[in-house]
Design a protein around this nucleic acid. Sequence first.
DNA 1: CTCTATTATATCGAATATCGATATAAGGAG
DNA 2: CTCCTTATATCGATATTCGATATAATAGAG
Lengths: 121, 121
Amino acid sequence: MAEDVKKGMRSPGDPLRGGMDLMVLSILAQERCYGYGIQQQVARASGGTVRLPAGTLYPLLHRLEAEGLISSRWDAATGRRRKWYALTSAGRRKLKLQASRWQSYAACLQVLLRPLIGESS
Amino acid sequence: MAEDVKKGMRSPGDPLRGGMDLMVLSILAQERCYGYGIQQQVARASGGTVRLPAGTLYPLLHRLEAEGLISSRWDAATGRRRKWYALTSAGRRKLKLQASRWQSYAACLQVLLRPLIGESS
DNA sequence: CTCTATTATATCGAATATCGATATAAGGAG
DNA sequence: CTCCTTATATCGATATTCGATATAATAGAG
Protein backbone atom coordinates (compact mmCIF):
# COMPACT_ATOMS: atom_id res chain seq x y z
CA MET A 1 0.00 0.00 0.00
CA ALA A 2 2.79 2.40 -0.78
CA GLU A 3 3.90 1.48 -4.23
CA ASP A 4 3.92 5.10 -5.27
CA VAL A 5 6.87 5.89 -3.10
CA LYS A 6 9.25 3.98 -5.30
CA LYS A 7 7.73 5.13 -8.55
CA GLY A 8 10.12 8.00 -8.95
CA MET A 9 9.11 11.58 -9.30
CA ARG A 10 11.86 13.46 -7.54
CA SER A 11 13.14 16.78 -8.75
CA PRO A 12 11.51 20.17 -8.86
CA GLY A 13 8.56 19.05 -10.87
CA ASP A 14 7.10 17.47 -7.83
CA PRO A 15 6.33 20.59 -5.80
CA LEU A 16 4.96 22.15 -8.95
CA ARG A 17 3.00 19.32 -10.47
CA GLY A 18 1.46 18.47 -7.17
CA GLY A 19 0.88 22.01 -6.04
CA MET A 20 -2.82 21.48 -5.83
CA ASP A 21 -2.29 18.26 -3.97
CA LEU A 22 -0.46 20.20 -1.32
CA MET A 23 -3.30 22.70 -1.02
CA VAL A 24 -5.89 19.99 -0.59
CA LEU A 25 -3.79 18.01 1.84
CA SER A 26 -3.07 21.06 3.97
CA ILE A 27 -6.75 21.91 4.16
CA LEU A 28 -7.69 18.39 5.14
CA ALA A 29 -4.95 18.37 7.74
CA GLN A 30 -6.88 20.88 9.79
CA GLU A 31 -10.26 19.22 9.60
CA ARG A 32 -12.21 16.93 7.36
CA CYS A 33 -13.97 18.59 4.47
CA TYR A 34 -15.80 17.88 1.24
CA GLY A 35 -14.89 18.87 -2.28
CA TYR A 36 -16.97 21.94 -2.68
CA GLY A 37 -15.90 23.17 0.74
CA ILE A 38 -12.25 22.73 -0.16
CA GLN A 39 -12.84 24.73 -3.29
CA GLN A 40 -14.25 27.58 -1.23
CA GLN A 41 -11.47 27.45 1.31
CA VAL A 42 -8.87 27.86 -1.40
CA ALA A 43 -10.76 30.80 -2.81
CA ARG A 44 -11.05 32.41 0.61
CA ALA A 45 -7.47 31.77 1.64
CA SER A 46 -6.28 33.52 -1.50
CA GLY A 47 -8.80 36.32 -1.55
CA GLY A 48 -10.25 34.88 -4.71
CA THR A 49 -7.01 34.96 -6.68
CA VAL A 50 -6.48 31.22 -6.64
CA ARG A 51 -9.13 28.89 -7.92
CA LEU A 52 -9.55 25.18 -7.89
CA PRO A 53 -11.89 24.25 -10.73
CA ALA A 54 -14.14 21.25 -10.35
CA GLY A 55 -12.44 19.66 -13.33
CA THR A 56 -9.22 19.72 -11.35
CA LEU A 57 -10.55 19.17 -7.89
CA TYR A 58 -12.56 15.97 -8.18
CA PRO A 59 -10.10 13.96 -10.24
CA LEU A 60 -7.48 15.13 -7.78
CA LEU A 61 -9.47 13.93 -4.78
CA HIS A 62 -10.04 10.57 -6.43
CA ARG A 63 -6.36 10.28 -7.14
CA LEU A 64 -5.37 11.14 -3.60
CA GLU A 65 -7.82 8.59 -2.31
CA ALA A 66 -6.54 5.95 -4.72
CA GLU A 67 -3.08 6.66 -3.37
CA GLY A 68 -4.33 6.13 0.15
CA LEU A 69 -3.55 9.67 1.23
CA ILE A 70 -7.13 10.55 2.04
CA SER A 71 -10.26 8.60 2.84
CA SER A 72 -13.82 9.40 1.91
CA ARG A 73 -17.18 8.87 3.54
CA TRP A 74 -20.62 9.93 2.44
CA ASP A 75 -22.43 11.78 5.13
CA ALA A 76 -25.70 13.64 5.01
CA ALA A 77 -25.87 14.39 8.73
CA THR A 78 -25.28 18.07 8.04
CA GLY A 79 -28.43 18.14 5.95
CA ARG A 80 -26.60 17.86 2.69
CA ARG A 81 -25.41 14.85 0.79
CA ARG A 82 -21.68 15.37 0.88
CA LYS A 83 -18.60 13.26 0.44
CA TRP A 84 -16.34 14.02 3.34
CA TYR A 85 -12.62 13.53 3.00
CA ALA A 86 -10.13 13.04 5.79
CA LEU A 87 -6.38 12.78 5.83
CA THR A 88 -4.92 9.35 6.47
CA SER A 89 -1.67 8.81 8.31
CA ALA A 90 0.01 8.21 4.97
CA GLY A 91 -1.48 11.50 3.84
CA ARG A 92 -0.01 13.23 6.83
CA ARG A 93 3.41 11.90 6.01
CA LYS A 94 3.00 12.90 2.40
CA LEU A 95 1.92 16.36 3.46
CA LYS A 96 5.05 16.86 5.51
CA LEU A 97 7.20 15.76 2.61
CA GLN A 98 5.38 17.88 0.07
CA ALA A 99 5.38 20.88 2.36
CA SER A 100 9.09 20.53 2.87
CA ARG A 101 9.72 20.37 -0.85
CA TRP A 102 7.46 23.30 -1.37
CA GLN A 103 9.38 25.36 1.16
CA SER A 104 12.60 24.62 -0.66
CA TYR A 105 11.12 25.60 -3.95
CA ALA A 106 9.47 28.73 -2.59
CA ALA A 107 12.65 29.75 -0.80
CA CYS A 108 14.65 29.34 -3.99
CA LEU A 109 12.20 31.42 -5.94
CA GLN A 110 12.17 34.05 -3.26
CA VAL A 111 15.94 34.31 -3.40
CA LEU A 112 15.76 34.79 -7.15
CA LEU A 113 12.83 37.15 -7.00
CA ARG A 114 13.93 39.30 -4.08
CA PRO A 115 16.44 41.49 -5.94
CA LEU A 116 13.76 42.27 -8.48
CA ILE A 117 11.15 43.41 -6.03
CA GLY A 118 12.64 45.53 -3.33
CA GLU A 119 16.25 46.67 -3.36
CA SER A 120 15.94 48.99 -0.40
CA SER A 121 18.48 47.12 1.72
CA MET B 1 3.97 39.30 -32.01
CA ALA B 2 1.89 38.90 -28.91
CA GLU B 3 -0.68 36.30 -29.70
CA ASP B 4 -0.12 34.57 -26.42
CA VAL B 5 -1.50 37.46 -24.43
CA LYS B 6 -5.03 36.88 -25.57
CA LYS B 7 -4.87 33.12 -25.41
CA GLY B 8 -6.34 32.86 -21.98
CA MET B 9 -4.27 31.81 -19.02
CA ARG B 10 -6.43 32.39 -16.03
CA SER B 11 -6.65 30.05 -13.11
CA PRO B 12 -4.08 28.68 -10.71
CA GLY B 13 -2.45 26.31 -13.09
CA ASP B 14 -0.50 29.08 -14.58
CA PRO B 15 1.79 29.87 -11.67
CA LEU B 16 2.39 26.17 -11.31
CA ARG B 17 2.79 25.12 -14.88
CA GLY B 18 5.19 27.91 -15.58
CA GLY B 19 7.10 27.65 -12.35
CA MET B 20 10.32 26.95 -14.12
CA ASP B 21 9.66 29.75 -16.54
CA LEU B 22 9.51 32.13 -13.61
CA MET B 23 12.83 30.87 -12.28
CA VAL B 24 14.56 31.31 -15.59
CA LEU B 25 13.03 34.71 -16.22
CA SER B 26 13.98 35.97 -12.77
CA ILE B 27 17.57 34.85 -13.26
CA LEU B 28 17.81 36.53 -16.64
CA ALA B 29 16.28 39.68 -15.20
CA GLN B 30 19.43 40.25 -13.20
CA GLU B 31 21.93 39.63 -15.95
CA ARG B 32 22.24 37.71 -19.15
CA CYS B 33 23.22 34.09 -18.80
CA TYR B 34 23.52 30.83 -20.70
CA GLY B 35 21.69 27.57 -20.13
CA TYR B 36 24.23 25.73 -18.11
CA GLY B 37 24.84 28.80 -15.98
CA ILE B 38 21.14 29.12 -15.26
CA GLN B 39 21.08 25.52 -14.21
CA GLN B 40 23.86 26.16 -11.73
CA GLN B 41 22.27 29.31 -10.39
CA VAL B 42 19.08 27.43 -9.59
CA ALA B 43 21.06 24.76 -7.82
CA ARG B 44 22.99 27.33 -5.84
CA ALA B 45 19.99 29.48 -4.97
CA SER B 46 18.28 26.44 -3.50
CA GLY B 47 21.26 24.85 -1.85
CA GLY B 48 21.03 21.97 -4.25
CA THR B 49 17.45 21.08 -3.40
CA VAL B 50 15.97 22.38 -6.63
CA ARG B 51 17.23 21.14 -9.95
CA LEU B 52 16.59 22.13 -13.48
CA PRO B 53 17.40 19.13 -15.70
CA ALA B 54 18.74 19.72 -19.18
CA GLY B 55 15.72 17.97 -20.60
CA THR B 56 13.58 20.64 -19.03
CA LEU B 57 15.87 23.61 -19.37
CA TYR B 58 16.70 23.71 -23.05
CA PRO B 59 13.23 23.10 -24.44
CA LEU B 60 12.06 25.74 -21.97
CA LEU B 61 14.60 28.28 -23.21
CA HIS B 62 13.62 27.60 -26.79
CA ARG B 63 10.00 28.06 -25.92
CA LEU B 64 10.60 31.33 -24.12
CA GLU B 65 12.58 32.59 -27.07
CA ALA B 66 9.86 31.53 -29.49
CA GLU B 67 7.43 33.51 -27.37
CA GLY B 68 9.68 36.53 -27.61
CA LEU B 69 10.33 36.67 -23.88
CA ILE B 70 14.06 36.16 -24.20
CA SER B 71 16.63 36.59 -26.93
CA SER B 72 19.70 34.50 -27.63
CA ARG B 73 23.14 35.19 -28.99
CA TRP B 74 26.10 32.92 -29.42
CA ASP B 75 29.21 34.34 -27.86
CA ALA B 76 32.59 32.76 -27.31
CA ALA B 77 34.29 35.88 -25.97
CA THR B 78 34.50 34.34 -22.51
CA GLY B 79 36.60 31.54 -23.96
CA ARG B 80 33.70 29.14 -24.20
CA ARG B 81 31.16 28.65 -26.90
CA ARG B 82 27.97 29.62 -25.12
CA LYS B 83 24.50 30.69 -26.06
CA TRP B 84 23.70 33.76 -24.02
CA TYR B 85 20.14 34.61 -23.23
CA ALA B 86 18.76 38.00 -22.28
CA LEU B 87 15.35 39.18 -21.18
CA THR B 88 13.36 41.17 -23.69
CA SER B 89 10.98 43.94 -22.69
CA ALA B 90 8.13 41.52 -23.26
CA GLY B 91 9.92 39.10 -20.99
CA ARG B 92 10.16 41.73 -18.32
CA ARG B 93 6.44 42.34 -18.48
CA LYS B 94 5.77 38.64 -18.36
CA LEU B 95 8.06 38.28 -15.39
CA LYS B 96 6.16 40.90 -13.44
CA LEU B 97 2.89 39.19 -14.22
CA GLN B 98 4.15 35.73 -13.39
CA ALA B 99 5.82 36.94 -10.22
CA SER B 100 2.60 38.56 -9.12
CA ARG B 101 0.64 35.39 -9.69
CA TRP B 102 3.26 33.42 -7.92
CA GLN B 103 3.05 35.67 -4.89
CA SER B 104 -0.70 35.13 -4.73
CA TYR B 105 -0.28 31.42 -4.96
CA ALA B 106 2.55 31.28 -2.44
CA ALA B 107 0.64 33.50 -0.04
CA CYS B 108 -2.38 31.24 -0.26
CA LEU B 109 -0.33 28.17 0.40
CA GLN B 110 1.41 29.85 3.29
CA VAL B 111 -1.95 30.67 4.86
CA LEU B 112 -2.98 27.06 4.54
CA LEU B 113 0.35 25.69 5.68
CA ARG B 114 0.99 28.05 8.58
CA PRO B 115 -1.27 26.39 11.15
CA LEU B 116 0.42 23.08 10.42
CA ILE B 117 3.94 24.26 10.97
CA GLY B 118 4.16 26.37 14.06
CA GLU B 119 1.40 26.28 16.66
CA SER B 120 3.44 27.94 19.37
CA SER B 121 1.25 31.05 19.53
C1' DC C 1 49.96 13.54 -26.79
C1' DT C 2 46.15 10.70 -25.08
C1' DC C 3 42.39 9.79 -22.16
C1' DT C 4 38.78 11.26 -19.30
C1' DA C 5 35.64 14.30 -16.84
C1' DT C 6 33.35 18.44 -17.19
C1' DT C 7 31.14 21.92 -19.68
C1' DA C 8 27.49 22.98 -22.92
C1' DT C 9 23.66 22.42 -25.90
C1' DA C 10 20.08 19.65 -28.02
C1' DT C 11 15.99 16.48 -28.98
C1' DC C 12 12.62 12.78 -28.27
C1' DG C 13 9.10 10.20 -26.05
C1' DA C 14 6.59 9.12 -21.87
C1' DA C 15 4.10 10.44 -17.96
C1' DT C 16 0.68 13.33 -15.93
C1' DA C 17 -1.39 17.54 -13.84
C1' DT C 18 -4.54 20.93 -15.06
C1' DC C 19 -8.73 22.81 -17.00
C1' DG C 20 -12.91 23.93 -19.77
C1' DA C 21 -16.97 21.87 -20.99
C1' DT C 22 -20.45 19.14 -19.82
C1' DA C 23 -23.74 16.29 -17.12
C1' DT C 24 -26.40 15.07 -13.19
C1' DA C 25 -28.98 15.64 -8.88
C1' DA C 26 -30.76 17.85 -4.76
C1' DG C 27 -32.03 21.86 -1.79
C1' DG C 28 -33.85 26.60 -1.10
C1' DA C 29 -36.05 30.91 -2.72
C1' DG C 30 -39.56 33.22 -5.15
C1' DC D 1 -43.02 25.10 -10.62
C1' DT D 2 -38.83 27.44 -11.93
C1' DC D 3 -34.25 29.00 -11.17
C1' DC D 4 -29.96 29.50 -8.78
C1' DT D 5 -26.73 27.46 -5.82
C1' DT D 6 -24.72 23.52 -3.93
C1' DA D 7 -22.34 19.19 -4.92
C1' DT D 8 -20.09 15.59 -7.37
C1' DA D 9 -18.43 13.49 -11.58
C1' DT D 10 -16.05 12.48 -16.17
C1' DC D 11 -13.81 13.36 -20.62
C1' DG D 12 -10.69 15.19 -23.92
C1' DA D 13 -7.26 18.63 -24.98
C1' DT D 14 -3.20 20.92 -23.72
C1' DA D 15 1.16 21.84 -21.78
C1' DT D 16 4.95 20.95 -18.76
C1' DT D 17 8.31 18.22 -16.91
C1' DC D 18 11.89 14.72 -17.02
C1' DG D 19 14.92 10.69 -18.04
C1' DA D 20 17.53 9.03 -21.62
C1' DT D 21 20.37 9.90 -25.12
C1' DA D 22 23.55 12.28 -28.36
C1' DT D 23 27.09 15.45 -29.66
C1' DA D 24 31.06 18.61 -29.35
C1' DA D 25 34.57 21.40 -27.11
C1' DT D 26 37.59 22.28 -23.24
C1' DA D 27 40.60 21.37 -19.16
C1' DG D 28 43.41 18.52 -16.62
C1' DA D 29 45.82 14.23 -15.50
C1' DG D 30 49.13 10.96 -16.73
